[in-house]
Design a protein around this nucleic acid. Sequence first.
DNA 1: CTATGATCATCC
DNA 2: GGATGATCATAG
Length: 204
Amino acid sequence: MKRAEAIAKLNQLAGVDLHSLAKQFDVTVLSPNGKVNKGWAGHVCERFLGIPINSAQSPNFGSWELKSIPLKRLKNRQLQFKETMAITMIDPYHVARTPFEESHLLAKLQKAVCVVRQVGASYNDPSFIHSIVTLDLLGDLYTTVKADYEAVQDCLNDPARGFDALSGRMGVFVQPRTKGSGHGSVSRAFYARPKFLARFVKLT
DNA sequence: CTATGATCATCC
DNA sequence: GGATGATCATAG
């Protein structure tokens, strides 16, 4: 399936409640223990496109990648990004010696197709598709993201800091953040800050 | 067990 | 509110 084709298909989902789709595709949203499957939204979209779920680096779709971003409504009825978006894992060795132009980070951003969805106060409130966007790094977006990436490289290459010193407080548009299965696993990934995402979506 | 899909919980 | 770190389900 081509990127444009997937975008067109996803656009047909505008206004649909993702929860009903989750039920249709039998995607777990809430486990029997009251725990939440935080990846359910993404899984639903993948299933909708007829793509098998797997945990590979994500070149599943061939030349592009699917992501979903939550949007929340402020008290003043304005829409705002609720969370940061996980972009890709950080491989210390790879990142430290790979220029931004060849990084997974840049590649992922350029291939990403984001499903912007509205969410309620909590995960079990209805969730509707807002729009589908593509991430094009233009002008300052590119330079700023590049600077953020290089800041991470500097940290990794600094003997006094290194991988363990990476913190979510770094970066302007993209930040290195802890991520893992949770149980003691210590891996980190690049996350896109709301500020960055807001550049791609019309928040009316 | 870990990578990938992101969101939840908590602290400021 | 916004930011930072922790955590959950699924597949290999």
